[in-house]
């Protein structure tokens, strides 16, 4: 796996990763009213980290992410589940959407809602699960390579 990352790929990745992550956030928030949303945004984000993984290795990707993808998975699932509850507290059915548009200084009117929380949850779940799988595969590969080298 280490041999895969060429200099060009590494340099490009350093530039592309922040862009991809920013773009994923953009797609996530844009999904509010326009095409986009948590699932596709999560995939875009995961693409960024996966690219980094190809350029460098699993260990560095893990330390770059800072958190274990499983934690993201758990938090996302929790957020998505919880987002159904506020509606029931107000006496509506489960997963009834609630909208809340406070006006903040500098930002102007901000649309907050339970679907947004749900979407953020989906984003985290997708990012977390894709990264769990990719890191597991890459980790296994690297371990296999190490053992062949040591033989």
């Amino acid at each position: 796996m280490t041999a895969m990352g060429s200099l060009i790929l590494r340099t490009a990745t350093r530039l592309l990763l922040p862009l991809l992550l920013l773009f994923s956030l953009f797609v996530l928030l844009r999904g509010h009213d326009e095409p986009g949303g948590g699932f596709i945004a999560g995939l875009v984000g995961a693409t960024g980290f996966a690219l980094y993984l190809f350029a460098f290795d699993a260990e560095r990707t893990r330390s770059l992410m800072g958190v274990d993808p499983r934690l993201l998975l758990g938090l996302g699932l929790f957020a998505a589940t919880v987002s159904g509850l506020p509606g029931t507290l107000l006496g509506h059915a489960f997963y009834t959407s609630l909208w809340w548009t406070p006006t903040l200084p500098l930002l102007g009117e901000v649309k907050l809602s339970t679907p947004l929380l749900f979407d953020i949850g989906v984003y985290l779940v997708v990012l977390g699960s894709v990264m769990t799988i990719v890191l597991a595969l890459a980790g296994a590969e690297e371990k296999a390579e190490e053992t062949t080298w040591n033989r």
């Binding site: 699932f39 699960s129 894709v130 799988i133 595969l137 296994a140 296999a144």
Partner: peptide, 20 residues
């Protein structure tokens, strides 16, 4: 598609580990 994406990703991990 989302579901089959997840399931097939798992299947790929599975055959990889099974092969190992």
């Amino acid at each position: 598609i989302v579901i089959s994406f997840g399931v097939l990703a798992f299947a790929v991990v599975l055959i990889h580990r099974a092969y190992e």
